[in-house]
Simulated scan of single mutants.
Amino acid sequence: MPDLLSFFAACPSSQGAGGLTLYRLQSAEEIYMHHLIALASWVMPTHTWTEALAIILRWIHLVAGITWIGLLYFFNLVNVPFMKQVDAGMKPKVFQYMTLPTLQWFRWSALVTVIAGFWYWAQIYVAADAERMGTSPWGTIGLFLLIWVVTWGILYFVISKTPTGYVVGAVTTVLVFLAALLFVNFTPVGQDDNHVLSIGIGGGFGIIMLLNVWGIIWRNNKAVITGTLAGTPPANAATLGRQAFLASRTNFFLSVPMVFFMAASSHYTILGR
């Protein structure tokens, strides 16, 4: 009924006998012009360059992150038990046609996730807070990178010694707790901003996970797989595999608090405001 009323309202009318109002049907040209004018009156929402960049970076970060974490869970929950059941003669084909291609998606999606997320955090939140405070954002950005890269360096040393999983878990817990504490208490910018602080922790976990992917998981698996496919597996294949497994398990468990802090940055204020 509203469409019918609006149609008649748009039609020219004339007064008929007995005081009745007579309506005539619109021509095709009139209908076309009516809709054209209505379309022209509709204004697209306008966005600043910063707002457009923010949504693009968030979209890339989310899509790449879903790919990365999805493959991380695939490796830990599906692939590890699956490979234990595969016959030795079948493993080369599995390595060549499943594991290697999946690792390619895994490592590159990890890199894209972290780059897009880091860019978003640094420009949209840290730089904005720095401008509000009248200072430089580089102190916070540099501190973030220093703390989490050093944390990974210590963790890398521990994993390289191939200890038990419990030792790696305990060391990782202590390291990330201390790293988070350092960042929250000593960041020059954003000490009152939940976005800066929460992503500063969750993103730090992401830095560790990325470096585990490129520094241990990909490198060790590539050495074992390419050697196996060439018929000359490395002599330390078992050690390389164990290190990759420990790094992957570390990423698996770190992904849970990582996602929590990322979500909390916008949906649950736990640090700052």
Results as ranks from 00 to 15, higher is better:
residue 74 F to S: 06
residue 80 V to M: 12
residue 113 T to L: 09
residue 97 Y to S: 08
residue 83 M to S: 00
residue 111 L to G: 02
residue 114 V to R: 00
residue 63 V to P: 07
residue 101 P to Q: 04
residue 68 W to N: 09
residue 101 P to C: 09
residue 94 V to N: 02
residue 65 G to Q: 01
residue 104 Q to L: 15
residue 92 P to V: 07
residue 106 F to Y: 15
residue 77 L to I: 15
residue 99 T to M: 11
residue 81 P to A: 06
residue 73 Y to K: 00
residue 62 L to P: 02
residue 76 N to L: 09
residue 73 Y to I: 10
residue 62 L to T: 08
residue 67 T to Q: 09
residue 100 L to M: 14
residue 66 I to T: 10
residue 64 A to E: 01
residue 88 A to D: 10
residue 89 G to Q: 12
residue 110 A to S: 11
residue 69 I to D: 03
residue 82 F to I: 07
residue 84 K to V: 00
residue 101 P to I: 11
residue 67 T to K: 00
residue 73 Y to Q: 00
residue 103 L to K: 05
residue 105 W to I: 11
residue 108 W to H: 04
residue 87 D to M: 06
residue 63 V to A: 10
residue 105 W to V: 12
residue 81 P to R: 03
residue 113 T to N: 07
residue 105 W to S: 08
residue 93 K to E: 08
residue 75 F to N: 00
residue 62 L to Q: 07
residue 64 A to M: 07
residue 102 T to K: 01
residue 105 W to M: 13
residue 68 W to R: 02
residue 75 F to L: 09
residue 69 I to C: 11
residue 62 L to N: 03
residue 75 F to C: 02
residue 62 L to C: 08
residue 69 I to L: 14
residue 69 I to W: 04
residue 62 L to H: 06
residue 85 Q to M: 11
residue 110 A to C: 09
residue 84 K to W: 04
residue 102 T to L: 15
residue 64 A to F: 01
residue 66 I to V: 13
residue 85 Q to L: 07
residue 102 T to N: 08
residue 107 R to F: 05
residue 72 L to N: 08
residue 111 L to N: 05
residue 64 A to V: 06
residue 114 V to Q: 02
residue 69 I to K: 04
residue 79 N to V: 12
residue 87 D to Q: 11
residue 91 K to D: 10
residue 94 V to L: 15
residue 91 K to N: 03
residue 76 N to V: 13
residue 68 W to I: 07
residue 100 L to F: 12
residue 95 F to A: 12
residue 112 V to H: 08
residue 79 N to F: 15
residue 79 N to I: 10
residue 70 G to L: 06
residue 66 I to C: 12
residue 109 S to D: 03
residue 103 L to V: 06
residue 93 K to T: 12
residue 91 K to A: 10
residue 98 M to P: 02
residue 93 K to N: 05
residue 68 W to V: 05
residue 86 V to I: 12
residue 109 S to R: 00
residue 110 A to H: 01
residue 70 G to V: 09
residue 104 Q to F: 15
residue 80 V to C: 04
residue 77 L to C: 14
residue 112 V to E: 01
residue 82 F to G: 00
residue 65 G to D: 04
residue 86 V to Q: 04
residue 74 F to M: 10
residue 85 Q to C: 01
residue 106 F to W: 10
residue 84 K to A: 12
residue 92 P to H: 07
residue 113 T to G: 03
residue 92 P to R: 13
residue 109 S to I: 04
residue 68 W to Q: 02
